[in-house]
Amino acid sequence: MNNFQYARANDVADAIRLLAADPGAKLIAGGTNLIDLMKENVERPTRLIDISRLPLRKVEGTADGSLRIGALVPNSDLAYHPLIEQRYPLLASAILAGASAQLRNMASVGGNLMQRTRCAYFYDTATPCNKRHPGSGCSAMDGLNRNHAILGTSAACIATNPSDMSVALAALDALVHIAGPSGERTIALTDFHRVPGDKPHVDTNLGTGEIITAIELPPPGFAQNYSYLKIRDRMSYAFALVSVAAALELDGNAISGARVALGGVAHKPWRSLEAEAALRGQAATPDHFSHAADLLLQGATARSHNGFKVELARRAIVRTLTQAANATPQSQAHKKIA
């Protein structure tokens, strides 16, 4: 770990001020990813600004029926919050599919959005990586890329976003509330994370000196017909090879609204409005799900070791939509796939 200064922010404005004062500074809340990366010398902040005590821990309903979640609500508290369990069980399920009970107790909602990729080359400072060291090259491209992205990749980077929570938030059309030197703004979660393009070292559209203050969930919670299915190399405590968040509004057997987001396949939670539009008005049947899967996976490109993800994702999409349609959401504890 590098040598850094430590400061505790008293309020959001203070955090923004401290950030502006030191271009090498970083915010720390739960710390579960940042400290990990600091121990690997991948992150080398000159100063840590501890925001963990800021009053951003509330989950509260708003006048328009949305739910506002403070950026510092721990992942586990959010997953087990009665309003989330009742109104947004898809989000609860996705959170519980990620990490471990201990890490979920530590990790904040805002920090989860800021998680960096688990690409092995990003973590290994002895190998080239455009995300860690822009311009040095991408070792994964022709290397060990079994875990890597098949969608939205660029010639510079094929890393994936490791978050489970973000996949559900993307499906739920969540908004990210941000405060910064020039005031407050809101970004759709689907616009929060970037595709790598030629700037893979930039993970998100969070601007310099900005801080996430809250996540907002709009009213449709899809509490009846949803499922989060995570496929991984062991039964728990592993990152997704592919994950799917599916949410449906059904009118009888007809789909009146559909959301599907993929994890483990791209630099950001992956959605396709085209696929969702194609589902609307259709019967909730496997062939329609299959067609949606094809649309979601349009343009998927594989490297030497991750070609299986295309077929795995296709099947997982169909399966998860089926679970959602049948109102048999995947349990994160009982491992038989419904």
């Binding site: 430590y6 720390i28 739960g30 710390g31 579960t32 400290i35 990990d36 840590l48 501890d50 963990s52 471990s100 009970a101 201990q102 890490l103 107790n105 530590m106």
Partner: peptide, 24 residues
């Protein structure tokens, strides 16, 4: 934070003590 051997209870909640700074 990959093994859980460092688990302690902080204010009654289980956490990985290797991924939090003492000052925090």
């Amino acid at each position: 934070g990959q093994c859980g051997a460092c688990t302690v209870l902080v204010d009654g909640r289980r956490i990985n003590s290797c991924l939090t700074l003492a000052v925090m």
